[in-house]
Nucleic acid binder design. Structure first.
Lengths: 214, 214
DNA sequence: GCCTGTGAATCCATTCACAGCT
DNA sequence: AGCTGTGAATGGATTCACAGGC
């Protein structure tokens, strides 16, 4: 996890979750929500919710609760979800395609501006969102020109480190890595890993424990 | 995170990571490794590595380090990666396809045994690994018959809760949810969420902070 | 001398419990 | 009365520092 500032990174992560629940709540027409109800929806507890929010300011009204709409706006402002972020993605296999086509990115203000792949056969191929696959050699220029801020890596693990270095050299400071490999990060470049096999390992471990208990 | 037994869940998660690094190390022909080197590779610190491993037993040799091959075997045994786990997946869109085709699952002993989708047009479609897409109505029987242990949800968020309930009813106790929604879990059913937009929100937050500092 | 294993110390996160506002 | 905001207390996880084996 990224470590920074005085705010617990765990809180930050949960706040992004609250936002998601609140939007659902809002779409159901609810106007106010208590920390207790929000806690239930997000599978945590009321004290946690209040503490998390208190790191960023005072958003609630004592005796009443939180105004759903206002809280959504506040959280969006806090976590930067009130603006657009420009992404590029490297490695357009199944996973890359899945991510580029994923509704949720667009809905949250994340825009894929460019896609790169090493395979010449794919150059020029148009993705569902209208962008075209470019060769790696154009990465540097494109990132600068389109002012891209975040890079996603969806290459096979063997290529991931090299791509991470290239992205860093091109000036990106934020990388989201989907390749199941631990990447070395250089100074001034934050890399977050999304690794679902680790989660699976977790489930498997607990399943094993469960079996043994019987 | 799943909470259970006396072992810190954070440790368990890291140990799965160590395994990945160790296999890389092994493929490069290294025979022994120190906690320090393993720590560098996994971006943690030596004390952490030693403490994590010590929860499960004593695997190292003082003055020398850890035998790579032996440590791999031990960790595999610990986390249950020394055997096969049978998976099913519900929702065969881009993401579902990406996961089913992903080398790493098979390599770690996770086998996709069945795939389900709500779309009748897809019934019978054969996936790269040879399994065929089935209707939801066959879920219960198939899970029992093939002794499936873990279910993956890759449906749109709107369908996710219903699917989770169905999987639970069919007897599954472990679910990995890729849909960006918080699922209510019933008694005796552990649900892990893989949510990459949360990670992105994280990066965006830090990017914003970075900008403000200037 | 080198490197592990681990109690003790520290650091961080969560929960409690209550004061304060409506 | 109801619900937030927050110091204080608790509980977990990480790091220190050193004893013990090679």
């Amino acid at each position: 996890m990224v470590k920074n500032s005085k705010i617990p990174s765990a809180s930050l992560e949960r706040v992004a979750l609250y936002l998601r629940c609140l939007e659902e709540i809002k779409s159901k027409g609810e106007i106010v929500i208590s920390s207790e109800r929000l806690a239930i929806l997000c599978r945590t507890n009321p004290a946690q919710v209040r503490k998390d929010l208190s790191y960023f300011g005072e958003f609630g009204v004592r005796g009443i609760g939180y105004d759903v709409d206002e809280l959504i706006k506040s959280i969006k402002r806090i976590i930067g979800a009130d603006r657009e972020w420009r992404l590029c993605i490297v490695g357009i296999g199944n996973l890359g395609l899945a991510l580029v086509g994923h509704e949720n990115f667009r809905k949250r203000g994340y825009r894929f501006m460019a896609a790169f792949d090493i395979d010449p056969e794919k150059y020029g191929m148009e993705l569902p969102n209208g962008i075209r696959i470019q060769p790696l050699s154009e990465m540097r220029d494109t990132i600068k020109r389109l002012e891209i801020q975040i890079g996603l890596i969806t290459t096979p693990p063997s290529a991931a480190q090299e791509i991470a270095d290239m992205l860093g050299d091109a000036g990106l400071s934020m990388i989201l890595n989907f390749s199941p490999i631990q990447l070395r990060q250089k100074e001034g470049c934050i890399i977050e890993n999304v690794d679902f096999t680790v989660k699976l390992d977790n489930l498997a471990y607990h399943l094993k424990e469960l079996e043994q208990d019987e």
